[in-house]
Amino acid sequence: MATPSRTLVISTGSGIGASVAARLHARGDAVIETDSALDLSDAGAVADSLRSLVGSGTVDRVVLAAIDPSAFRAAPITLLTEDQWDQAAEYSMRAAFIVLQQVHAVIADGGRVVLILPTVAATGVADLVPLCTAVEAIRVMAKAVARRWGSRSITVNTIEVELAAFMLGDNDSTDAVMPVVPVLGQPALPSGSAVDDVLGLVDMLATPAAGAITGALLVADRGTVMQP
């Protein structure tokens, strides 16, 4: 795993996932990406897409950053319809299951899976209950999968970044409506590129030295949320 040959990036086509893919492309890594229009909760479509992208071979690492954008709309749960709840909370959980299930068929033994999620579930955020619900479910699903795939020496880890970094990635346009996420303080470290921070960790997790790290949560928020 010292020189990963191919990385599969699965995202909704924006935010941190798209930015990570662009950076990997820019530095010359072999990267394949799923179509942003792909319904990640459709097992058949995801299977077809991955098989088409990967061909007869395998991928060495997978980066998954896919939360449905509806989850970022702040609203009290009592104002959500059943369909809105489903889309904002449950769609992303279904998608995580389907994607991870299909990844299992295309990832090489010894491969590395990295999920990127926003830090919101660690503290909970009012009016973002669906998002917090989905994120915590996906994070622990990843831990369960890490236990299952360990026998193939596949590691599965999660990196969490601040919500704004997750939603925007490298795109610093100001027209996005950002939910308010109250935090107790400022980041302990000076500000920097969250995409760089994530890429560093993705690369680190691909090294042989990281082969014993699985089921872990790495929080790359420059010390904003320091979990107990």
Binding site: A122, T123, L128, C132, T133, V140, A142, V145, R148
Partner: peptide
Amino acid sequence: GSERAPFYSAVKAAQRGFVRALAR
């Protein structure tokens, strides 16, 4: 996270995220 019960693990985790956010 449970190797044997990945779905059960995930939905029970979902409840913890729900609890933290709804408490606020």
